[in-house]
Design a binder for these strands. Sequence first.
RNA 1: CGGGGUAUAGCGCAGUCUGGUAGCGCGGAAGUUUUGGGAACUUCAGGUCGCAGGUUCGAAUCCUGCUGCCCCGACCA
Length: 440
Amino acid sequence: MRLSRYFLPILRENPKEAEIVSHRLMLRAGMIRQEAAGIYSWLPLGLKVLQKVAEIVREEMNRAGAIELLMPTLQLADLWRETGRYEAYGPEMLRIKDRHEREMLYGPTNEDMITAIFRSYVRSYRELPKILYHIQWKFRDEQRPRFGVMRGREFLMKDAYSFDVDEAAARLAYNRMFVSYLRIFARMGLRVIPMRAETGPIGGDQSHEFIILAETGESAVYCDAGVLNLPIPDETIDYDGDLAPIVKQWTSLYAATEDVHDAERFARETTEGQRIETRGIEVGQVFFFGDKYSKPMNANITGPDGVERPFQGGSYGVGVSRLVGALIEANHDEAGIIWPASVAPFKVGIANLKVGDAATDAACEKLLAALEAAGVDVLYDDSADRPGAKFAKLDLIGLPYQAIVGPKGLAEGRIEIKTRASGERVELSLDEAIKRLIAS
RNA sequence: CGGGGUAUAGCGCAGUCUGGUAGCGCGGAAGUUUUGGGAACUUCAGGUCGCAGGUUCGAAUCCUGCUGCCCCGACCA
């Protein structure tokens, strides 16, 4: 992609409304634009990252055996009255009426709807287990949105729902999602810790929050340093196998958010020097909630014993849009963003230091064509900006590799490859550089 | 939802106290010279001063009401 044809509105100065670093960098890098408090347009660069994050979530959900569908953003109030949640949810729920004065709402979550879908088709335990999920925009009318996309009112979320005949089977679904979450965040280069958590207004009796440790996090968290070094299951993990040992390994060390933190237990179960007290950003949550929705909504299935009973359910969320902000909180420096390769909007940025110089232009064109032909996502800065401005721009948007092409280097037959994360620079011939950028 | 701010050009701000032709920096356009870490000079364009009332010969400025946005707290994926 040529920058001259792209849409990348970079801001040189810090917008005053942005307090935390991810919000500031997303605005400056032209990723998002605020339309109202907690509501954003996703500009091309931001959208690419959002889609990459969503795709990783989707791949890992599918790998774990979950099935994707798509439910609407708008829901009928009557559906929520069946579970009593229309009244219970409070002003966080955005309520609207259609032209027929029917009461509707912009969904803050989808337990009620998925339960309605499930009960209208599934009658027998033979069709279980099932895990259904979708990736859809939600709306919660937060009293005070802040931190950019980390706590917006409109947000993109992956929510999965499990359906099982009994509690033992439901625990298996819980474990599947738990393990798949370990992989999702690891693939984004994030060290995420599952912590015991409160269940909140969605309810339930078992829950873990998946937390990124960050000084700028929203809540205080406490954990044993040992959880930082636990192994992540690789892609050969068998989701039909016994996952309980993995879950047990990850949940036996102390890790809790402030809501459920117990200072005495923390002191007792951890040793001096192994205690971490910091702040965290929640990026995912898993719940087991049993028949909380199936019972009031009469979502019954017939078991092997011929007896009808409500299914046992769980729900499993990942804050997809929030993750984009969280990724920046975890990966940046003074100059800007440092994208992990798996979610970077482009893998390579080419800086043409002297647009109009025949040799420099030709080298850049060759590099661009070779990389694009190899399927490498590449952004070519062909603007007339001065070199310093191009360097600053590339550092800001944080692409993993920068290919710096100027007349001085080309005179010696070399271009420079800079690795954004380490700052390391190597000088290579054009052909070597092409090979290196494709291979890395 | 309590407390505190703020609203003037695309962005960041001054001007408001003490009413009298709307300013600065960055950014944008044109040109010249530049060209390896956010260039210099010249010229130009760009604003119903958040909205609605009021006071006044005259309001960005004073008064009243409303709204948006931000920060702290409570709340929350």
